[in-house]
Amino acid sequence: MVAGIPILWLLVLFLIPFIIVFRISFSEVRLAIPPYTPLFTWHHGSPSLQLHWSSYAFLFTDPLYVSSYLYSLKVAAVSTLCCLLIGYPMAYAIAHAAPASRSMLLMLIVLPFWTSFLLRVYAWIGLLKNNGVINNVLLWLGVIHHPLALLQTDFAVYIGIVYSYLPFMILPLYANLEKHDGALLEAAADLGARPMRAFVRITLPQSLAGILAGSLLVFIPAVGEYVIPTLLGRTDQLMIGRVLSDEFFENRDWPVASAVAILVLLLLVVPIMWFQRLERQELTAK
């Protein structure tokens, strides 16, 4: 009973929906409600499946879709790397802070997460636009003489993703770094290893699980990110999440939108399984 209720709920509202998406990706669009050919057709009293490959053929032949796939992967990879480069030293500093101030610092990291995600992304419009705060400050300082085009660039999307997902990188890294045994580093120092060498040979390899968990937590949702590229990003190059949403809402082509979703899932299934394995290890290790 205890396990049955959540399993039943998730079967109906999480697993079955994916099967339906999968099925509809093999339908054809038609002018009706709902706007796709039926899931089953009846032939002489028995249901028969009709699979149409047209949506997939369309996605693979139209360069627009291929390029938004590759672009989404690039944006997610670069943002994950930036998150790691910024988040690692921050997590390290918190793990090495005095125990009394650690919880305070962690709270400061998590606090923005409790305010609206949408509004925090929106705040960057005000900072990045042509007559925005950053340009005004740089003009006033005399660093630049004409406003820089910051909004609607790749740079703005990186900033938006790093800004929104940074806590997701820092928390698993902190959880990992905090458990490290200082004695190993002391032993390395006693044996004459320089701090940098000790870090590369001891701390870094030990924190690999944290790096992986944090990176997956940033990378997977970033691939399908919709709000950040829509508010801050380029208009000539869309990310795949936006393409899916446009196919659905603007073109009302549900089969193509479903096919996009299935292809994104295929792409993410390996990192998602990887993340689940890490998560299971983490939860059973305690």
Binding site: L217, I220, P221, G224, L244, A257, I272, F275
Partner: peptide, 20 residues
């Protein structure tokens, strides 16, 4: 099924729920 929704891109979850 409890860890997947945390990382699942929201557009996919949204689309699949509506189709359901």
């Amino acid at each position: 099924m409890t860890t997947a929704p945390i990382v699942m891109p929201e557009v996919i979850t949204g689309l699949s729920l509506l189709l359901l």
